[in-house]
Amino acid sequence: MADNIALVIDFLFEHKLFFTALIIVIISLIKHVIITAIRGDVAFLSDVQRKWMSRTKNGVFVLTILILFLLWQTEVSKFALSVTAIAIALVIASKEIILCFTGSIQRASSRSFVIGDWIEVGNIYGQVIEHNLMATVIQEIDLQNGQYHFTGKTATLPNSMFFTYAVKNHNFLKRYVYHHITITVTKFDNLYPLFPALIEQIDHHCEDFIEVAKRYNGVIEKHAGVDLPGSEPHIHVTSGATGEQNVHIMIFCPTERAIELDALIRQDFMQAYHQQFGTQAHA
């Protein structure tokens, strides 16, 4: 029995290409079984499941590289000695790969985000669903247009982008958001008498969550170490280049209700403006 095992081992080490393919197949099957067990039968993955799936993929990748390096160590050493003369050319050719690796190290050391966070990189917004040594995968969110829903698009960002663009973590937006509303009024009327009643109506729309919003706002302030605007509504007016007035309203509300409240507040303002200034008003 021992002789047969020794013969098999000798055969595998004599035929390293076959042994390498066998190792990759076995490790891939083990990874597939583990990923399937973590995923289960759920339709939507949780952040915990995504984290463990990402850890499994990264761990399997590192383990595969380590095993193959040990298997081909002698050949790799000989090859490294033979390519000394072209080492500089190889470094230049693999610059992007090196940047991706170092970008991954930079992300891990700075802890700028983890799986499940909402981030902004350049003009791309999304929720992190996977990250590895080479790239970060996000589910795109339409934050740029003042929306908070997933677009259905998946973006794969090379980790080298973290050296080019600032990474902004919008994780607190997953629950509550400072939502900005802008309403343009073409006539130059005195709008300030409308605001007290408008603020009362906004408070009425927000009364079912305002206490939770105050506590969550306090948690964000404590975590960030800065004085944020607060959970109460804010209204101010600016003038445009052609004389129009822009009414800016900011509310702190649950992310999933921002669009609903946006519509209600616009409706309240338009009704109040029409009642105050008559049918000649154009908003």
Rank of each mutant, 00 (worst) to 15 (best):
V60F: 15
A281N: 11
L99Q: 15
G278V: 02
A258T: 04
Q275M: 05
H149R: 05
L45C: 03
E120L: 11
D262E: 14
W72Y: 02
E232D: 13
N169L: 06
I24A: 12
A263Y: 06
E232T: 12
Q144R: 12
L90C: 06
F69I: 12
L29W: 01
L71Q: 07
F113D: 02
K78Q: 06
H234E: 05
I183S: 11
K187R: 13
K168M: 09
I265C: 05
L12H: 00
Y125L: 04
N217D: 13
E260A: 04
N246E: 11
A224C: 07
L90M: 15
R55T: 02
D227W: 03
L194Y: 11
E96R: 13
I88Y: 08
E260Q: 06
F150V: 03
Y216C: 04
D142H: 04
S231H: 15
F11S: 05
F269D: 04
I119W: 05
T102A: 12
I220S: 07
E120I: 15
A166L: 13
A197Y: 07
D268W: 01
S77R: 04
F44V: 11
R50F: 05
K95Y: 14
H170Q: 09
F18I: 14
K78C: 00
N217E: 10
H149Y: 06
N145D: 07
L191P: 06
Q276T: 10
Y216D: 10
F61A: 15
A213N: 09
Y176F: 15
G278L: 01
Y148N: 07
L90R: 04
F19K: 01
P196Q: 10
L71W: 01
R55V: 03
I129P: 00
K222H: 11
V137P: 00
F113R: 04
G218H: 08
V8H: 04
E211N: 15
V60I: 14
V185E: 13
L17D: 10
T184R: 13
I38V: 15
I5A: 01
L45T: 09
H15Y: 14
T186N: 13
H282C: 08
T238S: 14
N246W: 03
Q201F: 00
Q245F: 03
N246C: 05
A21Q: 06
F163W: 14
Q276F: 03
G225M: 06
R39V: 03
P254C: 04
I141T: 04
M250P: 00
L228K: 08
Q245L: 15
I183L: 15
I26E: 05
R257K: 12
K153G: 00
T64K: 06
F113S: 12
E200R: 00
I220D: 02
S231N: 07
A197R: 13
T64S: 12
H234V: 10
A21C: 12
L191N: 04
T186H: 12
I5C: 00
A108D: 10
V237A: 02
H204A: 14
V212M: 06
G240C: 04
M270K: 11
Q245T: 07
Y176C: 04
